[in-house]
Design a protein around this nucleic acid. Sequence first.
DNA 1: CTGTTAGCGCCTTCAA
DNA 2: TTGAAGGCGCTAACAG
Lengths: 337, 337
Amino acid sequence: MTDEKAGPVRSITDLARIAGVSVSTVSRALTAKGALNTETRRRIQALADHHGFRLNVAAQNLRLGRTGSIAVLLPLGHERGQHLSDPFFMAMLGFLADELTERGYDLLLSRVLPQGDDWLDAFIRAGRADGIIIIGQSDQGAVLDAVADRYRPLVIWGSHGPRNRYLTVGTDNIAGGQLAAHHLIDRGRRKLAFFGNVAVPEFAARYQGFLAALPDDVRGQVDLVHAHVTPEASQSVATAYFAAGNRPDGIFAASDVTAMSVIAAAADHGLRVPADLSVVGFDDVPMARLTNPQLTTIRQDIAQGAHLLADLLVRRLGGDDGTSIQIAPTLIVRDSA
Amino acid sequence: MTDEKAGPVRSITDLARIAGVSVSTVSRALTAKGALNTETRRRIQALADHHGFRLNVAAQNLRLGRTGSIAVLLPLGHERGQHLSDPFFMAMLGFLADELTERGYDLLLSRVLPQGDDWLDAFIRAGRADGIIIIGQSDQGAVLDAVADRYRPLVIWGSHGPRNRYLTVGTDNIAGGQLAAHHLIDRGRRKLAFFGNVAVPEFAARYQGFLAALPDDVRGQVDLVHAHVTPEASQSVATAYFAAGNRPDGIFAASDVTAMSVIAAAADHGLRVPADLSVVGFDDVPMARLTNPQLTTIRQDIAQGAHLLADLLVRRLGGDDGTSIQIAPTLIVRDSA
DNA sequence: CTGTTAGCGCCTTCAA
DNA sequence: TTGAAGGCGCTAACAG
């Protein structure tokens, strides 16, 4: 006896008809929730399998008053193109996908152009996600603070500021800057420069920690060079810097990409790294060990960062409060400094 | 006269009550569909604005029988960790996010472990997305073929095979291999090696094109080195290769990351690039110009690839058929070869 | 253990 | 031009 008479099975209603039971029985069988005769459950599951039927997740979520997904927002704040080429952000994204999947959530990826003070509000109100992770606070601190007061499932990857009302997970950038400073000083470097855009809070904190850990006489003559995050832009800035005759003996770059740009530009000007110039990066992207010379850098633990972001958000979704977390960076000594 | 008496406005029902109209009127006002008195529409839109109300996208989609999102799947086929570190895939993801957003779709990111022959089917039946883009066919050609016959909104980034029944957008990898071969031969290189995992169809095609374009006597002694995609793994393979005494004068690497690993390993063995050894990569990732020496490579146009993937998929969603597309690669000559 | 029923928030036909 | 009503596919009381 076949039950092929009916057409395609598109809903639990269809399946209920074929199985000769009610929709709620089918629902219970397929969600493994609620009491149900074991045999009935088995039979219905087999039938569903046979017809290649699966519960429609969207409808299920609507009924449950949730969406089942977490939005990951990449704000394109300071500089276009950053996130396209920045291996750090991209690696973070990959890990987040894993962490969220493990917790039963889909990852809704959105690159947003933060304009005005309404962009985040508008996104939230559209109800497309149960929670939001923003990678990088960019220059949107005020917007984040305003929203955080009334929208709880929101976690930011970024620098922790004591006055932030929003929740962050991030590397202790100040400590990272200090590590870089100590290392360069230990190497006997005295004429230093920092390459990075200090309008980005993370980078500002790295710079701040860097300065703080330097001896007074060294600190006074540090060059602050406004380098962009894209390889092209930062390389041209570095080239201009060397072309102008600047000859520091130690450079702390706000990211590995910037560090690599600096090294490339230095090579063009006949400067040997690390003989003439020590360069310390930040991130420890996978490629940092493939450069020539291999990059000495301050490592951020991306995997742990993603884990903590997901964890904190899911906990908030469950009603817990949670608190901002800083991850300690590590100095990775290779050849460039 | 205020209308603040009611609590929060969570649905069109709430808004309709406040506005003193029916839900259908609110729906029409907020979707800008259907005939409606201009003044009424304006008034309701203003009211919605005032209350910070937005249509719930999930419910809207359920009603419209769609999800409003496109799934982008990263199969973790051959090698774990590939997509975490591969800048090419990640850049593709960034561009895809833009292209899909422009077309009104959300991007649902999912890293899948292709096991058995049911993984894709199961994903489709869950109904979480209106269409699927898979980045890399991995070794799942059979599964893709099977599904493509009955599930149309599916496009793959990958190598086009004449017998594939599924739709692909991808670089002409064979042509890319040929470009690499010609360039190395032009440079006078005769003792060649290919670094890459030829179980990956894209890489196999690159290898095939490479061999095809070589003179007979050169082709016969090409080393095929099974290199993994992660920097760590490929560097250790390259190190072992050189340590075993192999001394090719030209290497074609299946990706830029692999090329960089090869160069790093070569340096460890005292081989100068390009004096002793020419190395050609594949991809032209942003960092290719930051290496020392700068990478000579075969460029894939990621932006165009993402554009075509999105375009083709949306067209299929609209009922068009569309056909697989190959993108011509370009040789970018820098310093490594 | 199972069925009936009332929605989740929205859109759309049909009538007025 | 607007309203009433039905239903997208599912879940969860509440009955039986």
